[in-house]
Nucleic acid binder design. Sequence first.
DNA 1: GTTTTTTGTGCAAACGTGTGCACAATCACA
DNA 2: TGTGATTGTGCACACGTTTGCACAAAAAAC
Lengths: 348, 348
Amino acid sequence: MNHKNITSADVARMAGVSRSTVSRCFKADSRISKKTRERVIEIADQLGYQVNKIARSMITRQSDLVGLVSAGLHDPFAVVLVNQLIQKLQKMGLYPILLDASNTAQLELSIKKLAQYQVRSIIITSGSPSSSIGAEFIRLNVPVILLNRAGQLDAAHLINCDNKTGSTLAAKTLLDAGHRRLGFVNSNNSTYSGNSRGAFFEQALALKLASGEISLQSISCRSSDYKGGFQAALDLFPNPNSFYRNLSPTGIYCANDNIALGFMDALRYELGLRIPEDLSIIGFDDIPLAGQPAYRLTTLRQCPAAIAEATVKCIQGIPSSTDPLRISIPVELITRQSVAAPAHENRG
Amino acid sequence: MNHKNITSADVARMAGVSRSTVSRCFKADSRISKKTRERVIEIADQLGYQVNKIARSMITRQSDLVGLVSAGLHDPFAVVLVNQLIQKLQKMGLYPILLDASNTAQLELSIKKLAQYQVRSIIITSGSPSSSIGAEFIRLNVPVILLNRAGQLDAAHLINCDNKTGSTLAAKTLLDAGHRRLGFVNSNNSTYSGNSRGAFFEQALALKLASGEISLQSISCRSSDYKGGFQAALDLFPNPNSFYRNLSPTGIYCANDNIALGFMDALRYELGLRIPEDLSIIGFDDIPLAGQPAYRLTTLRQCPAAIAEATVKCIQGIPSSTDPLRISIPVELITRQSVAAPAHENRG
DNA sequence: GTTTTTTGTGCAAACGTGTGCACAATCACA
DNA sequence: TGTGATTGTGCACACGTTTGCACAAAAAAC
C-alpha cells in the first residue's frame, strides 16, 4: 500500500521516451542508440526500477523458474546434489522451485499447478515418480531432465552417473582383496540406481559365477536408507555366531552409502563384528559422512558438482538442441579402510 | 508450439458464459450459481484447463511463491528444517524458491530480482545474511520471517527455538552429573544461535561461577560445523596427555550437534579418549546422526516440524496480523549416552 | 540532389486473468 | 400485482510488459 511499484512507464516519463524504448534498453540485442540506453538505465537505477518478471513472463511465455523435484531430503546424497543444483542454477539467474516427492498424492497436485508458472524446465531427481508427471510436462513442451533415473520418457533428457564402471570397480576391488563369497545389498522396492548397480555387479562377476569359483548372495532391505541397511544386517545375521557359518558372504557391495553405513553399524554395534577384519564393505555415492573417522568407507564417488553442471548446461542448451540428451557422468573409486582380505576365508 | 494453451476464454466459449464467470467459478467466495459453477468446472476439467498463475499474479499482485534463503545445505539441521518447510509449504499450496546464501555477492543479486516475482513472503534461516536484504523486502511490503536469527529488523517476524531453556537444561545436566570444570564450544565467527546459547549457558552457571565452585572455559572453533569441532578438540588437547592436566574441562556443551560430533570424533579417534568415561558432551539440535549408534549424543532437540508449522501459520496469518510476531519454540533434552560422572575429577 | 538503405523510436495490440460497476432476473413480502 | 431486496452474469478496464509494424530522421549510394 505504502509503496507503489515503479514501472517502465515511470522511467519512460522521467526519461522522456516511450515504454517500448525503456523495455528495449533492458534487452541485449535490441537496436537502440547507445546514448539513449545509457541515459535510460541511469534513470532506471536512480529510481530503483526493476523489470517485473511476472509481466514479462506473461508475454514471453517463459520464466526463470525451474522445477526441482526431489524425494525429500533424507538421503544425504540427494542433499549434496540439490545443494549443487541450486548454487549452479542461481549463478545462471535461474530460480529453483523445490518440490517434495515423498508424498505422492500431494506432489501430483502441486506439480500440475506448477506447470502454470511457465517453468523453463523441470528437473526430476532419483527416487521420485517420473513417468506420469513427466509426460504432462512433455505435452506442455516443458523440457524434462531426469537425474539418475530410468527413462520411460523418450523425450526426456537423461543424466546418469556411470553405474557400470562403478559396479565393475566394486567387483574387481572385492575380488582382488581375496573375497570369494560376495553379497549385494539393495532395497526391495526397486529404485533405478540400485537395480542398475546390482545388475552391473552381477554382470562383472558373471564368468567366475558360472565357473563356480565364487558365489553371490542377494541381500534385500526394506528401504534404501540407513535403517534399511541396519535391518538387513540383522536379518542376515540373527546373532553374532550366524556370521561364522560356511557360506556367509564376506565381501559386501551396497547399493548406496546410506545402506552401507546402516549395515556397518549393525555389524559393529549390534553383532560385535569388525570391519574390515570380518567383513569388507563397499558403498556408492561418497556422501560426506562416509569419509569421517567413524566410518572410513571405501566407496564409489559420484560427483554432484559434475551432475549439476551437466544439468545446467542442458537447460541452457535446450533451445538449440533437438534430440534429448543422454549424458553419463564418471565415477571414481575412493579407497578408505572398509575393505581388506577376508580373515576366516578357510574356516568352516 | 505444438500445443496451444487453453485459456478461460476457451472454457467460456464452450460453456456459453463470459470469461468473468469462468474466473469466478475458481474463486471460493464469489456469488455464482451452484449450477453454473458445476457445469463450468466440469467443462474446465474436461478441457484440462488450469488458471494461469502468472496472469493471476499480474492482477492480484501476489503469487504463491515464497522465497526461502538458506546458507547452503551443509548443516544437517538446516536440511531437516528446509525439508519440513518445503513439505508444509507445499501442503498449503505455496511454492518455495530456494536461494543459497553461501555466496553473499551472488545472493545479493538473486534476491533483488526475486522481489519481482511478487513473492508472498520471504523466509530467512539461520546463518544467512539478513539485515540488508531483509530491509529491501520490508520496503516492498513483503513480509520477512527470520528463523533462529537475531532481529535487527523490527518489522520482521521472529521464530526462535528456546535457547534459554535449552542452555539452562544443559548446565543442569552437566552439574547434576558431577562436573565442576565446564566448557562451551562455539564458532568464533559469530552466529546468533551459538552466541545466544553461550550467553544463556553462562547465565545459568553465574551463581556457582561467582562463588568459585565451578569453572567455565570458552573453547572457540573456526567454523560451526563438524570440521570446526574436530579442530577445536585438537587445539584444546594437542596430545592425549594434555587432557589429564589439572584444569581441563570434563563437561562440554557444544553450540550445535555438528560441532559436538566433530569434537567427539577427534577425542575418540585422534586422542584415544572415551565418551562419556573421560569427557561428557552435550549438543544442540538433535540432528538425525546424533541418535545413531556411532554417536548416541545427549542433546537438546529443537523440533524442525514445529518451526516449520509456526512459519507456515505465520505466512497464512500475515494479512490479518498487524504486529510482527515473536514466537518461541520449545526444546527438549534427549538423554543418550554421552554424559556421565567425570572419572578423574579428583586427579591432579 | 534525389533515391535507397539503415537506424532509432513510438504506437498499439497482445499475454490471461481479476474485479468494480451496471443491469437483468429472480425472489420475498405485503 | 407492485415494490424492494437479492442474486447471477456480462462489460470493460486494469495489471506491466514485449514486439510487429509504421515511420521519421539520418546516412549512404548514385
